Amino acid sequence: MDSFTPTTKLEERLVISATRKRIPLGGSFELLPLCNMNCRMCFLRLSTEEMRAQGRLRTADDWLALAREAKEAGMLFLLLTGGEPFMYPEFDRLYRGLSEMGLFLTLNTNGTLITEEYADLLAEHLPRRVNITLYGSSDEIYGQLCRNPHGFTQVMRAIHLLQERHVPVKLNGSLTPDNWEDLEKIQQIAHDLDIPLEVDSYMFPSSRKGVCKFDEKARLTPEKAAEGYVKIRQDELSEEAFRELAKAMAECYDKGVDFPGECDPEPLPCRAGLSSFWINWKGMMTPCVFMDQPGIPVFECGFEKAWEYVKQERDKLFLPSECTKCGKRAFCTVCGACAYTETGDFQKRPDYMCAMTMEKLRLMAAYADEELSQQIT
Rank of each mutant, 00 (worst) to 15 (best):
E251Y: 13
V199Y: 06
A218V: 15
C35K: 04
D194P: 00
C146F: 10
L126P: 08
S28I: 12
A250D: 15
N108T: 08
T333G: 05
A337T: 09
Q188E: 15
E300D: 14
M37K: 00
I186V: 14
Q144F: 02
E12Y: 11
I376D: 00
K170R: 12
L44T: 12
K231W: 03
L183N: 12
E50K: 09
R233P: 00
V211I: 15
H160I: 08
I114F: 09
D178S: 09
Q375L: 15
E181H: 12
A158Y: 01
E140Q: 13
L66Y: 01
T324H: 03
L34W: 02
G111F: 01
A241N: 04
F29L: 13
R157P: 04
D62F: 02
E50Y: 01
S207Q: 03
I23T: 10
L220G: 08
L183H: 07
K255G: 00
Q154M: 11
F43P: 03
C288F: 00
P24Y: 03
A123P: 00
L317E: 04
F259N: 12
R208P: 06
K21F: 09
F299P: 06
E50M: 11
L268Q: 13
C35T: 05
A73T: 00
L220E: 07
F318P: 05
I279N: 00
K9H: 13
Q154D: 10
W278D: 07
I186S: 03
L363D: 09
A248K: 12
V167K: 03
Q144C: 04
E322Y: 04
P287I: 08
G344A: 09
Y253E: 13
A339W: 07
C42I: 07
C146Q: 14
E30M: 08
L34S: 03
N148W: 03
F303K: 06
T221K: 07
L31C: 10
Q312T: 13
F4P: 01
F43E: 04
F77V: 02
A337E: 07
R233V: 02
Y135I: 09
R68Q: 04
Y95S: 01
L79Y: 06
H191D: 13
L94H: 02
L162C: 08
